[in-house]
């Protein structure tokens, strides 16, 4: 007897659609669209930043560098990406 067809869990279609969608986040005060599910690492790569020279804050919480590839961005996230400049 043939096994029954694999049933997709409820909501799967919406989930798939959201993977293709883009979400709006705020980076250094500017609104920016990014692929849904993108990580902090993906965002930094898209901007073209050397991760060793910057620090990232997400919704006023530090994002440790070691977690850049694990932290996925969600709609409405507010990010600050900073570096050192000359100062007294």
């Amino acid at each position: 007897m043939r096994p029954p067809a694999l049933r997709r869990p409820p909501g799967f279609a919406t989930f798939r659609a959201s993977m293709d969608a883009r979400i709006a986040i705020t980076v250094n005060g500017e609104t920016r669209d990014i692929a849904a599910g993108a990580t902090v690492a993906a965002l930094l790569a898209e901007i073209g930043l050397d991760t060793r020279k910057v620090a990232v804050e997400r919704n006023e919480e530090i994002v440790p560098r070691s977690t850049y590839t694990a932290v996925a961005l969600t709609p409405g996230d507010r990010l600050e990406i900073v570096h050192f400049i000359g100062g007294g």
């Binding site: 980076v27 250094n28 005060g29 500017e30 901007i47 073209g48 930043l49 020279k53 910057v54 620090a55 600050e80 990406i81 900073v82 570096h83 050192f84 400049i85 000359g86 100062g87 007294g88």
Partner: peptide, 19 residues
Amino acid sequence: VTVAVRRVNLSDPNAPMLQ
């Protein structure tokens, strides 16, 4: 040396850096 912390310039990510 003292240094300040500021937002990176997103439109010019390859600008020379203090470091």
